[in-house]
Amino acid sequence: MDESIVKVENLSHRYSVQWAIRDINFEITKNGIYGLLGSNGAGKSTTMNIMCGILKQTEGRVLIKGIDIGKNPVEAKRHIGFLPQKPPLHSDLNVAEYLEYCAELRHIPPRDMPKAIQEVMEKCGIAHFKKRLIRNLSGGYQQRLGIAQAIIHNPDFVVLDEPTNGLDPNQILEVRHLIKEIAEERTVILSTHILSEVQATCDYIRMIEQGHLVFSGTVDEFDNYIMPNTLFVTLMAEPAVEELEVLPGVIGVNELGGAHFRLQFTDVQEAAERLVETSVARGWRLTEVHVEKSSLNEIFAELSKK
């Protein structure tokens, strides 16, 4: 068994009388990008803030590299990097000054600071802006600087809260690429409610809804959470719907316009085989057939019961 990078055990937290999260359990034992997914108000931020030692939980515990963050927060936080939704930047400092300040906060020895600062600037693509005031950086470069402060102490575990929020399409692609580079050397948790962000960036998903963990698995497992039950078909000869409805394994047919049809099936292999055989026999000129997966939005709705 690989060593746990993060282990969350029976985690619950209550604000006043309202439970924000309840009995959440999961473990991360390998590097990669983990999406912490959920709708607004689901409990993502509460979970993330507890994992980073910002909030003390009501019940349960979080272990970072085997260290209980509630009992030994200073030691545990040596292994954690955190980028809040709004990067904690000081606009009156330049890039190098700000990273030096962050290095001091992270107790990096003075002799090691110049190397750590230079390495993180190069990693995040901001070395050419080292003397520029932070207020004069674009939104994309401010986000890069926010990521730089999160990894300057070379943590094993990095938490990013909505890291592409408010960026333009080109900036989003650049930040995604940077996150993937960072994840080659460490574990990254990316908190978001945007499904496309998870699909484009993450390897694994942990989904929280109404304070409970409702999914834990790979992105492929998430994509296939709802078993497909429809075939998209293109038949250039456009047979009558009644002819398609009587095919073995087919339980329903929708006309999509032109030569396109959607067939609902009980058995995909039987439906596909009979479709191909009948198309050849009757000259339907089958040019396309594929199983339709459920959309991410449909899966999200099913898991969140909305």
Rank of each mutant, 00 (worst) to 15 (best):
E100S: 05
V62A: 10
L93N: 03
Q57G: 13
K115Q: 14
T29H: 15
N40L: 09
V276K: 04
I50G: 02
P228S: 11
I117Q: 12
I251L: 14
V233T: 02
G81C: 08
D2V: 01
Y101F: 15
N136L: 03
R176L: 13
R111M: 08
A272D: 06
T278H: 08
T230M: 11
S294W: 02
P248K: 07
E185V: 01
N297L: 07
G258D: 13
E255V: 07
T164R: 00
P87E: 05
G258M: 12
W19D: 12
S138V: 06
N25F: 04
I108R: 01
I189Y: 13
P239F: 11
E273L: 08
H128D: 15
I189L: 05
G217E: 14
T47G: 08
R206H: 10
E104N: 14
I5N: 13
G146P: 07
G140M: 00
E184W: 10
T47N: 04
P228K: 03
S138L: 10
K7R: 12
D223V: 07
L167Q: 04
E255P: 09
H128M: 00
I194N: 11
A183I: 01
R22G: 03
S91P: 06
I24A: 07
I205P: 02
T58Q: 11
N154A: 09
L160I: 05
S39F: 09
E277W: 00
A96R: 04
C52L: 07
R274L: 01
I69C: 09
G257Q: 09
N224R: 13
A272Y: 04
R111P: 08
L286Q: 09
F129G: 02
G140H: 00
I226Y: 13
E273K: 02
S304G: 14
R111Q: 13
L244A: 08
A150R: 04
V17L: 14
R144C: 06
L36Q: 11
I172L: 05
L11A: 00
R285M: 12
P84M: 01
P73T: 08
N31C: 03
N297E: 15
I251C: 12
N229F: 11
R144W: 03
K306N: 12
H290I: 01
N254W: 11
G125H: 12
E292V: 11
D68G: 04
T218N: 01
Q18N: 07
I80C: 04
M113P: 01
I251K: 12
E255L: 02
C102Q: 12
L195D: 07
E245H: 14
R206D: 10
A116I: 03
N154Y: 12
D220P: 00
D112I: 01
G35L: 05
L178N: 11
G217M: 03
L235E: 03
V62N: 14
V120H: 01
N165K: 10
G252V: 00
N154E: 15
T218L: 01
P248G: 10
